[in-house]
């Protein structure tokens, strides 16, 4: 065991880990952040996607050790203090972009990264940007609608 320090969802966190643990394991089992889903566990489905220093990674093939000293963001970290939904989450609700829900947290984190770039994208560009996620309910059109909507709304709100 070894103790590492990292920032999780804006809070400095100390956690005792086994060096062989994946970040997905640590977030779920030790920090109880169960929005992080374990799907394929080989970096293909994107269900475990979290942001490390603002970049989307598959936390199932990312050793927790590597996150020491870095910033990790999960869905739990994007809601308001009273549990209010963020703009990305609200867009997923409004566009009915959730079916069984298993791929949703990962896709929301990728959407957070996309929105964070402050740029607009074509539908084709967005398709490529979410291509590291599998939705086994095949609800891709509504997911794209939601991301397109929140990207455009944020763009309008932020300026030009």
């Amino acid at each position: 065991m070894r103790i590492i320090e990292l920032e999780v969802n804006g809070k400095k966190t100390e956690v005792a880990i086994d060096e062989r643990e994946s970040l997905a394991d640590t977030l779920r089992e030790r920090l109880h952040l169960t929005s992080v889903k374990k799907g394929c566990e080989v970096g293909e489905c994107g269900a475990c996607t979290v942001l490390v220093d603002g970049k989307a990674v598959d936390s199932c093939i990312y050793l927790t050790l590597w996150a020491a000293g870095h910033k990790v963001l999960t869905v739990e970290g994007i809601t308001g203090p009273g549990g209010e939904l963020s703009a990305v989450q609200q867009a997923f609700v409004d566009e009915a972009a959730v079916q069984c829900g298993f791929c949703t947290p990962g896709l929301i984190m990728t959407a957070v990264e996309i929105v964070g770039t402050g740029r607009r994208y074509t539908r084709e560009e967005l398709r490529k940007m979410i291509s590291g996620h599998l939705c086994r309910c095949t609800g891709y059109q509504n997911i794209l609608n939601a991301i397109e909507r929140v990207v455009n709304e944020t763009h309008k709100a932020v300026g030009k």
């Binding site: 970096g43 598959d58 093939i61 979410i130 291509s131 590291g132 996620h133």
Partner: peptide, 9 residues
């Protein structure tokens, strides 16, 4: 190669 998350690592 792969997808965006993979290309980040």
């Amino acid at each position: 190669i792969g997808g965006p998350q993979l290309r980040n690592v």
